[in-house]
Design a protein around this nucleic acid. Structure first.
Lengths: 240, 240
DNA sequence: TGATGTGAACCCATTCACAGCC
DNA sequence: GGCTGTGAATGGGTTCACATCA
C-alpha cells in the first residue's frame, strides 16, 4: 500500500503528526489520573509517579507523552494542568461532542443514564429506537425518538459520534443509517462485526467477550491449582 | 527486576500451552461468528471466509486457530461445530461460570439486565451494593444484597469472576472485598486503576475512554476536511 | 543532580509465502 | 487443486540506557 515515508509535504501538511494507536489508547487513562492529581492540587508529576498511578512503566509513559510534543521539564517532571490541557487538545476534548445513542433497550438506557459520558464532555443529542413502545419514553433525561428522525437530529445538531446499542440483528441496519446520516465514528456494543464504508471509524466493546477471556484465566488458574495439589508445591497465581 | 528468561520447568509444567494475549482476545469473536454459521447450518468454513466475517485476514485467522491445535482439514477448511467446541473448551466455556456484580447503580443494573452475559453461559450469582436504598430491590431477576454478604455468596456458589460497576470512589474497596472473598478475576467498569494482589486478573472497560479515542479521530477528520477545502483536493476519510 | 526525550535493542504480533496434506 | 499449518520476514510496540538539559 502507500509507501510514503515522510508524510511531511502532504496537503498543507497533516494537521498534526499521527499518534500510534497503542499510545493513543492510553491517553484517556493518563488524562483521568491527571484529573485526580489536579483535584488534589498536585502541580507537578514525574513519569515515574504517573507510571505508578496508571500501572504502566515510566519509559512507556515518557514515550507516549513525547508523541504530543516536549511538554515536560527535565529534572522536574510535567506540569499537571498544562499536560492535561495538551492531552485534551490532542484528543479534541477542548469542545463538547454531541452523540446519539441508537437502541433504547437495557444497554442503551444504561448508557444514556450513565453519568460518565456527559461528565467527560459528551452530550447526548438523542436516543433512538424503532420499537414504538419505547419511542416517546424518557431515558437519561432525553425523549426517545424514532430512528426515522436520526438523520434530522444528526444534521441539525452536528453529531459525528454514534453509540450503537441495539440487538445484533438490528445493528448493521442501524449502522447504515448512522453512516447515511453523516456520523463518522461509531462505538459498537452490538455483538456483530459491522461493515462500514472506508473512512468511518468503528470501535467495538465486547462485554461478553471480556468475560470469556477472564474465563480462560480462571480455567488456567483452576488447572494450575490441580497440578500444584498433585505436586505439593506452593506456587501461586496464573501470572496474568 | 525479575530477570527470569525461561519460565519453562515450573511446577509440573503449565497444564496447557499458553495462548498469546492478542490471539486470545480474538477467540470470542471467532466463537460468535461460528455460532452464527452454525445457526445457518453451515458445516465447513475456510480461514478466508472466517477472515471475511470477522474483519481479520486469513493468515491471522489460521495462526490464531493454530494455537489451539491442528483442527482444520487441508484442502477443505474447518468443521464449524468441532472448531466451536475446541474454542469453547480452550476458553473454559464448557461449563457455566457464576459471577457477581458489585454496584447496583445504572451500569450495574444494566449489566444485570443485559441478556448477553447469561446468554453466553455466565449466570449471575448475586448483585451487591452498600446503599441501603438499593439493597432488597430486584435487578435482572436477582435480589440486591448488601456487600457484606459478598463473601458468603462467593464461597457458597463458588464464584470466581466479579464485575465491578461501582462509582470510582468505591471501586478499590469493592475490589479488595472481591479479592478477599476469593474472586480471581475482575471485569472493571469503574474509572479507576485497581491495585490487586499478584495472581488476580483484571480487565478494564473504559467506556468514556473509548469515546475520547473516537473524538481524536473525529478531530482529525475535521482538520483534514479543512485542509482539503483549502487545497481543493477530493481525498476522503481519516484512514482509520 | 535529577528527570525528560529518544535512538537502539528487544520482543511480540502480523503478514508472507510455501511445504504439507486431504 | 485447494486450504491448512507454520517457519521466516516484517513491522509495531515496549523497554533500555544514556545524552541532554533545567
Amino acid at each position: 500500500m502507500g509507501a510514503e515515508r515522510h508524510n511531511v509535504s502532504a496537503v498543507s501538511d497533516s494537521p498534526r503528526r499521527r499518534i500510534p494507536e497503542a499510545a493513543l489508547s492510553r491517553l484517556p487513562l493518563y488524562l483521568r489520573v491527571l484529573g485526580e492529581l489536579s483535584n488534589e492540587t498536585v502541580n507537578q508529576v514525574s513519569s515515574e509517579q504517573l507510571a505508578e498511578l496508571t500501572g504502566m512503566n515510566a519509559a512507556k509513559v515518557r514515550k507516549d507523552l513525547s508523541y504530543l510534543g516536549s511538554y515536560g521539564t527535565r529534572g522536574v517532571g510535567y506540569d499537571v494542568n498544562f499536560l492535561t490541557y495538551q492531552i485534551q487538545r490532542e484528543l479534541g476534548l477542548n469542545h463538547d461532542w454531541p452523540l446519539v445513542i441508537v437502541g433504547a433497550g437495557n444497554l442503551g438506557q444504561a448508557l444514556a443514564n450513565y453519568g460518565g459520558f456527559t461528565e467527560r464532555g459528551f452530550s447526548i443529542a438523542g436516543v433512538f429506537d424503532t420499537d414504538e413502545s419505547k419511542v416517546g419514553g424518557v431515558v437519561g433525561g432525553v425523549r426517545v425518538r424514532h430512528l426515522d428522525d436520526l438523520s434530522q437530529v444528526v444534521q441539525s445538531k452536528n453529531v459525528s459520534i454514534g453509540v450503537l446499542a441495539t440487538p445484533g440483528e438490528a445493528a448493521q441496519e442501524a449502522a447504515n443509517r448512522l453512516v447515511r446520516a453523516g456520523v463518522g465514528s461509531i462505538l459498537n456494543f452490538a455483538p456483530v462485526v459491522l461493515s462500514v464504508p472506508r473512512g468511518v471509524s468503528v470501535r467495538k466493546v465486547d462485554l461478553a467477550g471480556e468475560l470469556q477471556i477472564l474465563s480462560y484465566y480462571e480455567q488456567r488458574r483452576a488447572a494450575n491449582a490441580v497440578a500444584r495439589e498433585a505436586a505439593g508445591a506452593p506456587a501461586r497465581g496464573v501470572s496474568a
